[in-house]
Design a protein around this nucleic acid. Structure first.
Lengths: 339, 339
DNA sequence: ATGAAAGCGCTAACAG
DNA sequence: CTGTTAGCGCTTTCAT
């Protein structure tokens, strides 16, 4: 087997083609200022030797790697669960990166050790920029990267301390989305509207709960809250708590479709008819939400666009251009049979 | 914002600590041959300056990156579908890489352009080794990488031309697994056993169909074949074809659980009872296969272990140690109500 | 135990 | 249009 070390370098290609290293470099990088016959000679030498540029060497001088990281602070199990968030973000990011001819480096960090490794990786400039999604708590990494000049962008407003270097982010209008859901329930004459909130260490969890509280504040309905962690199972459990809390509730806004699906199961087991006895509204407009029984009324968010916009912001940042601090995408209610 | 270029280098740390670059390098890399007081001085300088090693520079001299790529020649949509193969592989790979303190770089290549970019990325030595899973057709990339000395490992026997540099692989014993499924059906007295095969440009598709044919060859049952592409939808369609072909069939072996789920739907729509009228056996032992109606009898394969073993092989290869050419993991039948 | 010096392979001024 | 030259930031002998 050919060893790693005896691969041809620019130098050897140059010698073989009878030109200088610089000329070979020009040809390899597509400069047009090289005479056609020489170009041909160089290309032949490259082919014959099987030359491939050493990216580390190139990066050392150009200071760029042409690759971008997407960091998901979750375990692989979670990332590949049926939560529609991850595929959506990854698809949006992939599309846009493809167009920019940049390589996507997907990094999952479900543990402290892997989080550290990613920090070293990014700080070490293995990538030209870093995107974060599904962040928990007040992760200082985005701010740290921004501070040392590594372009960073978040999906969802970063919860990190205000003093931190500002990290641009893309998010959706949680509050307005939730407001329209609650309004829909109110219009239908629902009296006791509960909510199953998302985890309170994530922006999406916090904002959607805030939206619920704010929407109810106007009316004289009291709030009834249970908290889940965006998984289907937690939704089922939370629904049970809600039913214990207030057996007479007649509507529930659930902060994710996955949890809403779990809630549906609990309601079915409890003998409640949906939407006759209890109306249910989810959040995400996941594919499967059309096939639940009954199909879920839900709040649609443009997940793919979040991915795309993150890339746009990041590439701008990487070019040193100024970028808006936040980009808030709209949401809208999709009415189906469950409410 | 701090620009990328004015980050401190070893040189500056050295100056600040009043030592040479070499000494700083030793401390940063944990060499023990540095006097404690000097170590302390260096560490302080590193902290004060916020020094982070430039990985490209390090890579240039050490010829290693401490990161490993996992290439999935599929679109993001497919990778994040509910096919249990991907999460399983990624989990196994992650676990093992975590233990080895290597960074996983996950690369999806659903298009020709992205496949090319990955080729450049790997050939350019951005990573120390490359693992491939879910390969289609005769992708020459693994062989090419192996030939230039880049460690490469596949999940599933590579279909590429025999003359190619040998790429070690991890696979499962498809044929034996399928044989036990067919035997189970035969033992139950099934007379007309059909199959829904996987795509014939993938090893798993080819081998499982071969297993089916081989198993039937012994008996005097004729084979009835329809081909899908491992998606749920294709399973539903293939089942319809099968029913048209031979309305009297009383059993079907399906090459993946996802397709089996689709087949179940078609059978239900066609008014066939499972397993009374038609027995169904799937492949993969996906989580959801326990919750289908009826629960699927299926063939379990140790997917996570495939990921782990790929990493083991790769790390060995990267150390220049010899490795076995193939590692075949066992499968076994999990009997549930569908057969 | 520490420092000096020689590259790793490449790009980018700058001359010519 | 092409070659010369000077590094990019780091590790690693080899001396001391």
């Amino acid at each position: 087997m050919t060893s790693a070390r005896d691969r041809p370098t620019l130098e050897e290609v140059a010698r073989r083609a009878g030109v200088s290293r610089a000329t070979v470099s020009r040809v390899v990088n597509g400069s047009t200022t090289v005479a056609p016959p020489i170009q041909e000679a160089v290309r032949r030498a490259v082919r014959e030797l099987g030359y491939v540029p050493n990216l580390a060497a190139r990066t050392l001088v150009t200071q760029r790697t042409d690759s971008i990281a997407l960091v998901l602070p979750e375990t692989a199990t979670r990332v590949f669960s049926d939560d529609p968030l991850f595929p959506g973000i990854v698809r949006g990011v992939s599309q846009e990166l493809e167009a920019a001819d940049r390589q996507l480096v997907l990094m999952m960090a479900g543990s402290a050790a892997s989080h550290d490794r990613i920090e070293r990786y990014a700080m070490g400039r293995h990538v030209d920029g870093v995107m974060f999604a599904s962040m928990h708590g007040m992760d200082p990494l985005p701010g740290t990267l921004a501070r040392i000049g590594m372009p960073a962008v978040c999906s969802g407003r970063p919860l990190a301390a205000g003093a931190a270097a500002a990290v641009p982010y893309v998010d959706i209008d949680h509050v307005t989305g939730v407001a329209s859901a609650i309004q829909h329930l109110l219009d239908a004459g629902r009296q006791r509207i509960a909510t199953i909130a998302g985890p309170q260490d994530m922006v999406a969890g916090i904002e959607r709960l805030a939206g619920y509280r704010q929407a109810l504040r106007g009316s004289r309905h009291r709030s009834i809250v249970a908290v889940g962690d965006f998984t289907r199972e937690s939704g089922a459990i939370a629904m049970r708590q809600l039913l214990d809390d207030d057996p007479a509730l007649d509507a529930v806004f659930v902060a994710s479709d996955l949890m809403a699906d779990g809630a549906l199961r609990t309601l079915r087991e409890a003998g409640r008819r949906v939407p006759d006895d209890v109306a249910v509204i989810g959040f995400d407009d996941a594919e499967f939400a059309r096939y639940t029984d009954p199909p879920l009324t839900t709040i649609r968010q443009p997940i793919i666009d979040i991915g795309r916009e993150m890339v746009r912001l990041l590439l701008k940042l990487a070019e040193g251009k100024p970028v808006e601090e936040a980009l808030i995408l709209p949401t809208h209610l999709v009415v189906r049979d469950s409410a």
